[in-house]
């Protein structure tokens, strides 16, 4: 009993160390958000909101913001207000949209989550399967066909793939809409609505899947090559297991481990990729929001986006870590 307790104790400790990792990343962003504007010359209000914003603001609004964020106070008081505001979910005021930053982001976030979530699942499944097949049959025609394509695809910049697809299917062939997440004022509902959304989602999704496919594929393939050399593959063959069992249950399952770890590292990459593609396809997600904020120089909005994206990335990473411990008994029990 006591040994059992000890083990849990140990696991908790490790999890804390892990968590501290996420906390550190998060703090880094907070500090950046807080310090960066205040490092700029001029008074905080000017630095945080920028010239363009202030032109658009009335003096009352300025006063309200100064009060809300204690901008006329010394920095520690500012920090305290900043944190308290954050805890309330107050990310500041977007002069461009004339409303709170969090509200704006919440409008745009679901589309990004839809896009990345789907792309993530589809690209992971296809990438892993192609990688397993290619690695298992290395040197075959299939492998010789996939490998160069994937290496090429993996080398391309994501937004350019998007541009090409947009120009091809959207502009030239007219098969896909040029922007948006659904047709405005069409009043679709039910199945029509779903189809409409799918129609708009198609091109960005395909692009994102294509972009994300290559790294998953290459990594799975490499992992397969390594796993196939392991002795237990020989054991499985000598046991007379079927090809499929050897390929998926043993080689594939073990090759998944490094792939899952690497997914964690790839999540930031993937979300940024999605942001860029949203801009290319004018898809109303966080990326487009970011682009708007950038051209409008709406600094609080940029900060808010950064914070949300970071939180999303860290959460995903955490989930991936959790999955990993489920997948690999060596990590599950060795601790």
């Amino acid at each position: 009993m006591s040994s059992l307790l000890k083990r849990y104790d140990f696991i908790i400790k490790i999890d804390l160390i892990w968590l501290s990792n996420y906390v550190a990343s998060f703090l880094l962003i907070l500090i950046l958000n807080f310090v960066l504007p205040r490092m700029m010359p001029g008074d905080p209000l000017h630095a945080i909101y920028g010239e363009e914003a202030l032109i658009a603001m009335t003096p009352e609004m300025e006063a309200e913001i100064i009060k809300r964020f204690a901008l006329d106070q010394p920095w520690h008081a500012q920090l305290l207000t900043y944190i308290i505001a954050l805890l309330r979910g107050d990310l500041g005021y977007s002069y461009y949209y004339r409303t709170g930053v969090s509200d704006v982001i919440l409008c745009f976030l679901p589309w990004t989550l839809l896009l990345t979530g789907l792309a993530f699942m589809i690209s992971s499944c296809i990438g892993v399967i192609l990688g397993i097949e290619s690695g298992y049959r290395r040197g075959s025609k299939f492998d010789g066909f996939m490998l160069p394509i994937m290496m090429f695809l993996g080398g391309m910049p994501d937004f350019f793939i998007g541009i090409i697809l947009l120009l091809l299917f959207g502009v030239t062939l007219g098969l896909a809409p040029l922007g948006g997440a659904m047709s405005p004022y069409a009043g679709h509902s039910g199945i029509d609505l779903v189809m409409d959304i799918a129609h708009h989602l198609m091109l960005p999704l395909i692009t994102l899947v294509l972009v994300q496919l290559a790294p998953t594929y290459l990594l799975t393939r490499n992992a397969m090559l390594t796993t196939l050399r392991a002795r237990f593959i020989m054991t499985a063959k000598a046991t007379g297991l079927s090809e499929g069992d050897i390929r998926y249950k043993h080689a594939g399952r073990n090759s998944l481990l490094p792939v899952v770890t690497a997914i964690g590292i790839r999540v930031p990459n993937m979300i940024t990729g999605a942001l860029f593609l949203e801009i290319v396809f004018s898809y109303p997600g966080v990326g487009t929001l970011l682009n708007t904020a950038l051209s409008a120089r709406d600094y609080p909005l940029i900060q808010g986006v950064l914070l949300i994206v970071t939180v999303t990335v860290l959460t995903t990473n955490f989930l991936v870590d959790m999955t990993y411990t489920r997948l690999d008994p060596r990590v599950r029990y060795a601790r």
Binding site: L28, I29, I265, T272
Partner: peptide, 22 residues
Amino acid sequence: MRAVDAVMSLPSVVVMILVGAY
């Protein structure tokens, strides 16, 4: 190594956008 992990799990492009914007 903590620092390495922390920086690696940041969405670096977005952070750079912010820093670059300022």
